[in-house]
Design a protein around this nucleic acid. Structure first.
Length: 646
RNA sequence: GCCGGCGUAGCUCAGUGGUAGAGCAGCUGAUUCGUAAUCAGCAGGUCCGGGGUUCGAAUCCCCGCGCCGGCUCCA
């Protein structure tokens, strides 16, 4: 083969012989790719610009609009365009970093005054000009020192700082028009590829995320290859807004917050409290079925005890303290302490293990004011918390049981989920042997269950490795709820032990775990997931009886009474309003069943249920309706919950 | 905690220095009606709290509380 030819292996396995030094774009066009749909290329697995020249044999693949990673390249380029616009409007602005993120991009700027909404509009307008002019992105490689001089000259101290932290002697910069930015690339060929974008918000953000650093101004935006995709995304945002649990919580009269009470404290109204009671009743039954014992500990415990557990040293900032009779007490931020004391209340034998203590434990954590968010981030919340104390050889089985528990619950609520194992972090306690054994127990439990999982190296708690379960709601948003954590410190600090078969004392292994996590957060997620239209087994009000006129009130009352006796949660709407009005209201309250009661029903002595989705069922006796709803509840919960759980 | 925005009737919001408003919800009355809003009338406010500027503050300034969007933190 001639020296001037190289061989490119294409995605479909075909080999293309091309001149050495050809651009990625020309090579891909020779391979039959459509110029208009290409935005970048993959060379030996690495993303590169279309203008990249190829000097050696390689594997090559074109990146089209729909390819994985394509939209990230677009968004990153959009961030550059935004930075160019900002620099042209605010020449004194210093640029920091501007990556693509999930659903969009951002760029951080150091500016004299924060951006306003007006500024965003001006920036958007300038971006549109830049996009319309179709400026090409040019890559330039230069020695790092040269780049430092370049940016230092332009007073771009953040870029200089970034460059100084880099190891490589050569770096790359990209320019479009007069704007030059330090960047690894790749980028879209020219600015006109950004067919649809929007700047969404502006917020303060610390340089490198560290609160000791200066605060920069971050502008968020998003970009797409076509207008429809942007519209779809904006529609998704609207959808999320409609499902917002804070709004639905008010509209459905579930809960509220009050500035007189204080930030981050939930007030449950009757329907919200009922919903929570249903969840809790369900949980208690499920834990008892699985051999957990329900326990209850106090809210206030002496500070001395928090010192012994290590919470005082490691978690004090988040705790509330008070003084009673000259004694310092701390309000519990976790439930483990009394569980430790229950374990220690008598001598334990290996025959007693495993012990599984379950508590719907209400804890207080002093979260920073800026992070509070509806039910999802509060200062007082209740965990479905349990601590399992077992022999090391029982650990694997216990973990498997918990995983089964989680899987079953996620199935009942209709959530897909992902699992992650987090391993030993740098700052941690315990022997290597402990960590290995516990980590292996977690990994093998997941493997034996055939569960796929991700590994997050060094992300474990300082006291032990953990499995986190992230559920995904109907809008594909991820929420952390369940977590399974091994703990080497507490059994040690509280000197827990059991008498083994050999008659000697041994240290039990401890597992902290929650299934729903915080009941508050889980409720918030549930509200958003179902958009407030709870499945009938969870709905605080399962049916509303609606009279057509006053004449049916007595019969309607007797229907409600009968249904209540059967365990149904039912309300009566006998107000002097037109039927349509009452139906509309029940519909907006998302009640699963409406029982319209007019003269026909009175005469027949039965009900004609109407489902929330508008389907109309035939006349049936009241008892038959109750049996039907009971079955519906049981079917949705794998036979666990019927009528009358509360 | 930090940056920015915001706080007016139960809810959604108008009102930018000169007598606090609308729609929905509520109450009263009429209407007694068959599957997503009947009509009329009435009532409803420490304009988040405190301080200041001003002849006069919902409106301007300061402090605090709370909410929203982020950052950060998350044993």
């Amino acid at each position: 083969m001639s020296q001037d030819l190289i061989r490119l292996t294409l995605k479909d396995g075909k080999v293309l012989t091309v001149p050495r030094g050809i651009s990625a774009k020309d090579a891909l066009m020779m391979a039959g790719e459509d110029e208009d749909s290409l935005i970048a290329a993959r060379l030996n697995g690495n993303l590169v610009d279309l203008t990249q020249t190829v000097d050696h044999d390689a594997a090559m693949e074109g990146l089209g609009f729909d390819s994985e990673g394509a939209v990230e390249i677009l968004r990153h380029s959009a961030a550059h365009i935004m930075a160019q616009a900002v620099k042209s409007l605010f020449p004194n602005a210093k640029v920091a970093i501007g990556p693509a993120i999930e659903n969009g991009f951002y760029y951080d700027f150091d500016v004299e005054r924060p951006f306003t909404q007006d500024d965003l509009e001006k920036i958007e307008a300038r971006m549109r000009e830049i996009i319309a002019s179709g400026m090409e992105f040019h890559r330039k490689e230069l020695p790092r020192e040269e780049a430092i001089d370049f940016f230092a000259e332009r007073n771009e101290k953040y870029k200089v700082e970034l460059l100084q932290a880099l190891d490589s002697p050569w770096v790359s910069c990209y320019s479009q028009g007069d704007f030059v930015d330090l960047c690894r690339g790749p980028h879209i060929p020219d600015t006109s590829y950004v067919k649809a974008f929007k700047l969404t918000s502006v917020a303060g953000a610390y340089w490198r995320g560290d609160e000791h650093n200066p605060m920069l101004q971050r502008i968020y935006g998003t970009a797409f290859f076509n207008r429809e995709a942007l519209e779809k995304y904006l529609h998704f945002l609207e959808e999320a807004l409609r499902r917002d649990h804070r709004r639905l919580g008010r509209e459905l009269d579930l809960f509220s917050f009050s500035d007189e009470v204080g930030a981050g404290m939930v007030i449950y109204h009757p329907k919200g409290a009922l919903l929570r009671q249903i969840l809790e009743a369900f949980e208690k039954r499920e834990h008892l079925r699985r051999g957990y014992q329900i326990v209850m500990g106090p809210t206030l415990l002496k500070t001395e005890l928090w010192k012994r557990s290590g919470h005082f040293d490691h978690y004090r900032e988040n705790m509330y303290f008070t003084e009673i009779d000259g004694q310092s007490y701390g309000i519990k931020p976790m439930n483990c302490l009394s569980h430790m004391l229950i374990y220690k209340s008598k001598i334990r034998s290996y025959r007693d293990l495993p012990l599984r203590f379950f508590e719907l434990g209400t804890v207080h954590r002093h979260e920073k004011s800026g992070v509070l968010h509806g039910l999802l981030r509060v200062r007082q919340f209740t965990q479905d918390d349990a601590h399992i104390l077992c022999m090391p050889e029982q650990l694997n089985g216990e973990i498997q049981d918990i995983i089964d528990f989680v899987i079953e619950f996620m199935g009942i609520f209709g959530f897909p989920y992902e699992m992650e194992i987090s391993t030993r972090p740098e700052k941690s306690i315990g022997t290597d042997e402990d960590w290995d054994r516990a980590t292996r127990a977690l990994v093998s439990a997941l493997e034996e269950k055939g569960m796929p999982f991700q590994t997050c190296e060094g992300e474990g708690a300082f006291y032990g490795p953990k499995i986190d379960i992230k559920l995904k709601d109907v809008l594909d948003r991820k929420w952390q709820c369940a977590t399974i954590q091994c703990d080497f410190t507490l059994p040690e600090r509280f000197d827990l032990n059991y008498i083994g078969v050999d008659g000697g004392r041994h240290r039990p292994v401890m597992v902290h775990r929650v299934i729903l996590g915080s009941i508050e957060r889980f409720l918030g997620v549930l509200v958003e997931h179902y958009e407030g239209a709870f499945p009938v087994w969870l709905a605080p009000v399962q049916a509303v009886a609606v009279t057509v006129t006053d004449a049916q009130a007595d019969f309607a009352r007797s229907v409600c009474e009968e249904l209540r006796k059967a365990g149904m949660r039912v309300e009566l709407d006998d107000r002097n309003e037109k039927l349509g009005y009452k139906i509309r209201e029940a519909q907006m309250q998302k009640v699963p069943y409406m029982l319209v009661i007019g003269n026909r029903e009175v005469a027949a002595g039965g009900v004609c249920p109407r489902r929330r989705d508008g389907t109309q069922l035939d006349l049936m006796p009241v008892q038959e309706f109750a049996a039907m709803v009971d079955k519906e509840c049981l079917d949705a919960t794998m036979g666990r919950v019927g009528l009358g759980i509360i």
